[in-house]
Design a protein around this nucleic acid. Structure first.
Lengths: 199, 199
DNA sequence: GGAGAAGTCGAACGGGCGTTTCAACTTCTG
DNA sequence: CAGAAGTTGAAACGCCCGTTCGACTTCTCC
């Protein structure tokens, strides 16, 4: 086995630029617009350099996903340990900036098995994190864990957030503002109940 | 203006075959695998014929969407008028066969504006249908329309269903069976409550 | 049965794609 | 300061794409 040759600092920086450009393209034009040429054009390099930096296009998507997923998982863990876990979690989930990229990843993973595998690992990790914490949390909110088990609450919350963001990004007018307002009020009530019960 | 000459019966049938093949490809390989050549290959015709039959590829996606959307909207209307509206609706929403295609459409619409427009019209129509019916229905289930307004219930139910189907199709193991079971039990309770209240 | 529309075919257009190759160049290291 | 390792540029590979075109066959209707 040949020992690894270390990259120069400038190269490491360029890799970050390539990942940034890829995210940007995914958000602006959809994941299908990502190609070695489009990414290279945005960064100001030649197409083959993209492959030199990150490998195949599959590897590129995986690298972007991993970088983002780590950040979001950390944010989620923080949110679930905050003063108002439900509210913090919801704010994170319902934020278009975070969710928009993942909608693209979900779509892209349908015909990029390598990406799907990584996305699956991440989805399982996030769901596990949510469920474990909800196990302790739900009783504090006055929710019966038999009637509303963590698996259901987690899936419904995330599904609702994704649905709202997807409709809003698509410009579909499906009363998302109304739903968001009602969800905010529901969270108000639940957080108040929790506060009362822990006093 | 020359009056339109009507298409031959065989052609009408071929158009249906083209739409069928497109659906099949979307489900099996993802929407990105749809091309005049792939569709033509599946049907056993030449690529230009696809354009002769349905026009551009955008038109092809729109035609497939419209055909399916009409069917699903009708099924939804039926479900919401059935004996157990909530259960029927949930069964329809949570059925992978129906939802899988729409996940592809949502993804494809991100970079096909023409498709996005039609999808938006359809999403609005479906949401409106759900909300109008829920307005009458929710009180019967013992749900306060102030606490749980139709917009929230509709978005959450649909979001949950899409999330579950997406995870299952992707093969991600995110406790979807647990969530489905809990949802079924919740619907059992709600339908029982409704039955009791209407007696 | 013949005019003309509907349908079919094969070839071709310009273009974008992922990726490889290879030679030239820079930068670091001993 | 030489040579190794890292980096860059240009060109090219084969492939698939949407779509158009013109010539052909088949059908329909008067």
């Amino acid at each position: 086995m040949a020992e690894k040759r270390r990259r120069r600092a400038a190269t490491v920086e360029k890799v970050e630029q390539v990942l940034d450009a890829t995210e940007r393209i995914m958000l602006d034009e959809g994941y299908a617009a990502v190609s070695s040429r489009s990414v290279a054009g945005k960064v100001g390099i030649n197409p083959p350099m993209v492959h030199y930096y990150v490998g195949s296009i599959d590897d590129l998507f995986v690298a972007v996903l991993r970088r983002r997923a780590e950040g979001i998982a950390a944010q989620l863990a923080d949110a679930l340990e905050s003063d108002e876990p439900l509210r913090s979690w919801w704010q994170l989930a319902a934020d278009p900036r975070g969710s928009a990229l993942f909608i693209e990843f979900i779509a892209a993973s349908n015909h990029r098995p390598a990406l799907g595998k990584v996305l699956g690992e991440y989805a399982r990790e996030v769901r596990k994190l949510q469920m474990e914490r909800l196990e302790e949390l739900l009783p504090l909110y006055g929710l019966d864990p038999i009637e509303f088990p963590p698996a259901l609450v987690a899936a419904a919350t995330q599904g609702l957030a994704f649905g709202l963001v997807a409709d809003e990004l698509g410009g579909h007018d499906t009363a998302t503002a109304e739903a968001r307002a009602a969800m905010d009020r529901l969270i108000d009530r639940l957080e108040a109940r929790r506060k009362a019960s822990t006093d």
